[in-house]
């Protein structure tokens, strides 16, 4: 599936010295390559998360459009867009995101329960949890997990609907080196199978796994590899 942004900007209101709003993301044209791992690096506050959220169909841009196989996502009604996101875009957000009323396994399965049928999903969930080395935690409630365990849970959750597009915002930020390698290898494998993978990262090591690398600076995206 093709994901393509055209002239996307995003401004925020913020009490500043002379203006009260600024651009976190400047006019950005971007196309996510299929079957490849793409990385965006950049300093803190440069606009990476803002961009990743917009690409995930999660944050409405101030201007511009996002096309998923030619469909303008932000022109769709909320429900239609939500369903498309749920089926085709797996999102690993920055920060801790567990639903406290659900166990780890239920958290991972939640996106599958929303619109689709559950056939084979539980086995897939267990397989990803196994791969993330947290399968022994599957019946634990998510508020009992460590930061790194939560992160791995949210990676498994992003993959449960077998999305064609995966957008991960600092997915290895709170993981040790071994687990980081584990996650990056998983993403590599998925890209090799045809997925479009976008990773936002500070990690130096991640560079070795990437086919394309971009840098974000003050809301401006530039290609460096």
């Amino acid at each position: 599936m093709k994901l393509k942004s055209k002239g996307i900007t995003r401004s925020f209101f913020r009490k500043g010295r002379n203006t009260n709003f600024f651009y976190a993301l400047q006019k950005t044209d971007f196309e996510l390559q299929e079957g490849a791992v793409t990385e965006i690096v950049g300093r803190s506050g440069s606009g990476k998360t803002t961009f990743a959220n917009i690409l995930s169909g999660f944050l409405v841009p101030t201007e511009g459009s996002l096309y998923l196989d030619g469909v303008d996502l932000y022109a769709l009604r909320d429900e239609r867009r939500s369903i498309l996101r749920n089926r085709h875009i797996g999102m690993v957000p920055q920060g801790q995101t567990g639903l406290q009323s659900l166990t780890v396994l239920e958290n991972v399965l939640a996106p599958a329960m929303m619109y689709g049928d559950m056939k084979g999903r539980e086995a897939l969930a267990l397989q990803y949890l196994e791969e993330m080395k947290i399968s022994d935690l599957c019946d634990v409630y998510s508020n009992e997990l460590s930061g790194g365990e939560l992160r791995r849970m949210s990676i498994a959750r992003a993959l449960i609907n077998s999305p064609e597009i995966i957008i991960a915002d600092e997915p290895t930020g709170d993981l040790d080196d071994d687990t980081t390698a584990l996650v990056l290898r998983l993403f590599r494998r998925l890209a090799d199978k045809g997925c479009s993978v976008l990773i936002i990262t500070h990690e130096q090591e991640a560079i070795h796994y990437a086919d394309n690398i971009y840098r974000m600076e003050n809301g401006i995206l530039s290609e460096i590899k």
Partner: peptide, 15 residues
């Protein structure tokens, strides 16, 4: 926050 997490997974406003 909980609602935002549900939105991450693709929950619609209606949901």
């Amino acid at each position: 926050k909980e609602f935002a997490v549900l939105r991450v997974m693709g929950a619609s406003r209606k949901m």
